[in-house]
Amino acid sequence: MADLWLQFVLTIDATLRVATPLILCAMAGLFSERSGIIDISLEGKMLMSAFAAASMAALTGSPLLGLAGGILVSVALSLIHGFACVTHKGNQVISGLAINILASGLTVTLGIALFAQGGQTPFLNKSERFTDIVLPFAEQAEHVPVLGTIYKEIISGHNLLVWVALFSVIVTGYVVFRTTFGLRLRAVGEKPEAVDSAGGSVSGLRFQAVIIAGVLCGIAGTYLSTAHGAGFIREMAAGKGYIALAALIFGKWRPVPALLACLMFGFMEALAARLQGVEIPVIGNISTDLILVLPYFLTVILLAGFIGKASPPRSIGVPYIKER
């Protein structure tokens, strides 16, 4: 029983680690999509910034400069997305797809040119990464039953970016739902002509939204390569951007429900990792592939209106054309 409890606590701990990039990307998607810009390029931005952050950290030895590099590159991709979708009123899905494919090719190409390690970046040692922060009294807390284990295993021992991710949910919720900027942002995603006639700039707001999305994806990418991992590996985003998008939809474009969806999807992944090759009494060997597909499957079921209803911002995907 005690062993099972520890297993459970460790799975929850892993959930938080796995969910961190999902949370950041889901909040990024929330800003972008609430402003009316579809963002399927979460994946590409995260991949590209993972590469940039690891390269920067490897070259300078500083994880903070890595973070700066990751954010910078991700914002640059956001600006391309904005240039195509807002300035040139291009198709938002196509632009996002282009960025994803571009990132897949560019990371490996640049990686080989810079480090000649088959597209990877060099291994980052402890001083070049965001390391786990052990909270005070974590070791002593071990002896306290239940609460102590929770404190030591789940709450303590995460790196800075995990906390940033959780904090980003609060900030997103506040900015989008409690500030004038957030009100305008949501209005631009629902009824851009209203913002326009009130004297607001539709393009300006949408650009701000995609830039914020870029910053958050940049942190997510940095987390992958210089906090959770120790260097960049090709295709290391591995569909996480799309899972985050699914979580955003699952959370109906709201911060806290999206956070919960990210945690749920993260839990599935952590559970799948833990159950790999484990024989469970009665049921036998559970196929981990089938657990990993659940996020996509559940999102389809939700979108089909079988569990609640997810209605996107009304003007999502529609370029705004000013009437003359």
Binding site: A84, N100, A103, G105, G119
Partner: peptide, 22 residues
């Protein structure tokens, strides 16, 4: 030495960007 087939992926991304979104 330095160019691999991922270069094609990059070119493909650029083509989608320019002939699609832009």
């Amino acid at each position: 030495q330095t160019i691999t087939r991922e270069m094609v992926l990059m070119i493909q991304g650029l083509i989608i960007l320019f002939s699609g979104a832009l």
